[in-house]
Amino acid sequence: MITFLQIPWPWYVAGFLIGIIVPVLLLLDNKSFGLSSSLRHICAACLPTKVSYFSYNWKKEIWNIFFVLGIILGAVIATNIIGNPKPIQLTATTIADMKKYHITDIYSLLPVDLFSFKALFSIRGFICIAVGGFLVGFGTRYAGGCTSGHAIMGLSNLQWTSLVATISFMLTGILFTRFILPFILQL
């Protein structure tokens, strides 16, 4: 058990635990699994405005904020108590790619070459941290959901509109990584 807690968890364990959150939230109190709406609730709570998109009773959706706080806490626990002791295992081709892009930190979950306060002042770091963050917020709200809301919750409820959304963001990710990301990483 202790050894299992310390190694990186395989995909089927992670997939099962994430999938089971869907019925748990429904059975607890009819809550639909989805994370990007938390961004909207935080905006509604922190920036009182006349913009109609943020004028609703956010306190009724407060469970979503508790859920997000739990995620942060869970990550703190996992990292500090049962963290994966070995560096992240990457495929040889990925390691070769990173060498080409002068990304030297291939041992942690995120490379410090791109995701640190120092990197924020480089062009590629700014694009990954700030532009990336902006597009995640803008895009998921425009799309009405993200990986959890569309690809898992929406598809499990057989919503064809979630299939359209999932295909759109997966295909964009594949094409963007193939054709545009290499240029950004070389900036």
Partner: peptide, 12 residues
């Protein structure tokens, strides 16, 4: 929105 999110997901 999903296209924009796909780019954001790739970057971040």
């Amino acid at each position: 929105g999903s296209i924009l999110f796909g780019i954001g997901w790739t970057l971040s």
